[in-house]
């Protein structure tokens, strides 16, 4: 077997193991299926009934944001399972096996990809039921879903890195919540970022989450001429900048996570 074939085969084996694990662990499964459904219904009905936007239904405006929010939140599962594995000694077993060393992280993130496909599909279906509509061409819509998955994959390497640096599930959960909350709420997920007060406005507009949300809105056609794109540069070129973010995140966090993984397991 060539090193590349081995890396792929071993990555698949690990990813199958993680998939079995998620299927059997109710708390993880809840994160994949129930959380996205709850997020869609909760925010659509609670905020949707209070907020009126000119030219577009709030549900349509909100859904792309909820997609991104759920990706950020459920990427924590990657980190959580990694920290759990770190404490259980299963990595010691893996490391005495003649497997590709990259397989653990590749397998983990591949499995998260499957998980994200499931949860985005669930949200899209529930979204369609409660009034979300795709108003772009089918090609653009596919592009929208692919961009969300690309973001999800890249972001799971970020949480993997945080997890490998912190190493305990409890600490990881606390820090991850602390990071993901401002990331999601200081953005354009729920509100129009251009109407935020003073210093919050540039923070929200340059927040990468806002860029992804803006890109998703454009690709799904959930925009309106009555609500022009804010002047901030990343939002003006949201799709291109989003792809750029994903590439940058992978370029930084794949080597970083790999290094931290080696350090974490070689003690």
């Amino acid at each position: 077997m060539s090193p590349l074939q081995m890396a792929i085969a071993d990555g698949m084996t690990i990813s199958k193991r993680n998939a079995l694990k998620i299927r059997r662990a109710p708390d993880l499964l809840g994160g994949v299926i129930i959380l996205p459904v709850v997020f869609v219904l909760l925010f659509v009905y609670v905020f949707g009934s209070m907020i009126d936007l000119p030219g577009i239904s709030y549900t349509e405006y909100l859904l792309p944001g909820i997609f991104v929010q759920t990706i950020v939140t459920s990427a924590q599962i990657t980190g959580y399972t990694l920290t759990q594995d770190l404490q259980k000694g299963i990595f010691d077993r893996f490391r005495t096996l003649p497997m590709a060393p990259s397989a653990v992280l590749v397998g983990q993130t591949l499995c998260d990809m499957l998980m994200n496909i499931t949860s985005i599909a669930t949200m899209a279906l529930v979204g369609l039921l409660v009034g979300w509509r795709v108003r772009s061409s089918p090609l653009e819509a596919v592009g929208g879903f692919l961009l969300l998955l690309f973001f999800a994959y890249a972001f799971s390497w970020v949480t993997a890195t945080i997890a490998l640096a912190l190493r305990t599930p409890e600490v990881f959960n606390n820090i991850a919540t602390l990071v993901s909350f401002p990331l999601v709420f200081l953005s354009n997920v729920f509100v129009d970022s251009s109407r935020l007060p003073g210093p919050l406005k540039p923070v929200a507009e340059w927040n990468p989450v806002s860029t992804f949300v803006q890109a998703a809105r454009e690709l799904f056609g959930n925009t309106t001429a009555l609500r022009p794109v804010p002047d901030a540069w990343p939002l003006q070129h949201a799709v291109a900048v989003s792809v750029g973010w994903c590439v940058l995140i992978l370029a930084v966090f794949v080597p970083l996570a790999t290094r931290l993984y080696k350090r974490a397991v070689s003690q």
Partner: peptide, 10 residues
């Protein structure tokens, strides 16, 4: 090893 390196969910 000292700690059984097996996967609980499998």
């Amino acid at each position: 090893g000292q700690y059984a390196a097996v996967d609980e969910h499998l």
